[in-house]
Design a binder for these strands. Structure first.
Lengths: 209, 209
DNA sequence: TAGATTGTTAATCGATTAACAATC
DNA sequence: TAGATTGTTAATCGATTAACAATC
């Protein structure tokens, strides 16, 4: 499964966006699209779209364009969205609940196996059909259930402790909402959602308007 | 207030991160730091750090380094975090509540003036001291209270309608969690938090590990 | 003063765009 | 076949890194 050619991060960050727009087109019943038309829709140049896609293979047909359905599927495969990931949410506050219910509703590839909270008081609660467990059971749960992905929605100061536990348990990927940059071994992947960075960039944009 | 020199988006995206680390250092009582030491901490090259900062002015001192406190303040100013932004949250679901309480707690520069919901049933509820209003009152509220920033936490299909209303009311910046790319006039700033894009990038990283 | 470290220019690297031959 | 549009190479552009003179 190793990629022979290294794909730049810029390209990877664009892939989910392609997929999102292609999903829309598919839903609207559009069958084919040219890089030019997709360009107008998505806001990248046609040239860039073709470059990006050709990192992974020739998915189009000269003189015709791209099959929307086919391209959607290819990109889904490239992203690894052709399998299911058992997922836990760690942190049963408002954000944890929001993310658990978002995933349940919108991300079919990620199935919520359990929710965990650092405080033990919420133990044995059930959130939308998912059991809430105590943090102490996290490690065993991940191992016993083959959980690959964890969503961290605990406050800043607990982020690293939670991450350490997840790593010990053999987690493969972490979706991190905890506002700290986690120290992780190389074999664990992380995607950070730094709320404050995003909001502060907005403040900057507003300045010279 | 117009920036004479155009600053690239890559630089802007790094500024909040600088500020975050400098804030940490300040809290720990560190008084000065060299670009080399900051580099090791933050993970950008020392050269890049000096380049980035010198887009805005010479904040350091040869042979010494940068004053942590001073640099923190300078970056805060650059980002526009030296003033207060009246803010509304539109969408009173779990995510809306999570973001309202996050902002209240962590983002002193953004003061939550009101929360709005598309359904009218939550009207006159109070969330952590903030009044929840009906969507119908949004436009007038923004105008009457000089609200500059709106956080959109409604589902995908309502995103554009909400944005249109905000624009009509004269909003200046939108922090968008609604998973659609909003159509906005040029004078309105937007920062998108596309949850699914972020999660799907994580899936990609996990593939060849 | 000597040492350290910035500010800034120049060199390199990588990513985007343009161009066009291949081909459906 | 003619027209359209891809795949891919070459040219351009921009961002990062290296180097070093300025100076505290």
């Amino acid at each position: 499964m190793k990629q022979t050619k290294v794909i730049s991060k810029a390209v990877i960050k664009r892939l989910p966006r392609y997929r999102r727009y292609l999903g829309e087109l598919k839903k609207r019943g559009v069958e084919k699209i040219s890089s030019k038309d997709l360009s107008e829709l998505i806001g990248y140049t046609a040239s860039q779209i073709r470059q990006d896609l050709n990192n992974f293979g020739g998915f189009g047909q000269q003189g015709y364009g791209y099959s929307v359905e086919n391209l959607y599927n290819e990109i889904s495969n490239i992203l690894g969205l052709n399998k299911e990931y058992k997922t836990v949410v760690v942190g049963y506050g408002r954000l944890g609940q929001a993310m658990a219910s978002y995933i349940e509703k919108n991300e079919k590839q990620f199935s919520i196996a359990g929710i965990f909270d650092v405080s033990d008081k919420v133990e044995n609660e059930v959130f939308k059909g998912t059991q809430v467990h105590a943090f102490n059971d996290l490690k065993a749960f991940i191992r016993d259930n083959g959980v690959e992905v964890a969503v961290i929605t605990v406050p800043r100061d607990k982020g690293q402790v939670v991450a350490d536990t997840l790593v010990e348990a053999g987690i493969k990927g972490i979706w991190n909402f905890s506002s700290v940059d986690l120290e992780l071994p190389d074999n664990v992947c992380v995607e950070n959602v730094h709320m404050s960075d995003s909001l502060h960039a907005l403040a900057y944009y507003m300045k010279d308007k």
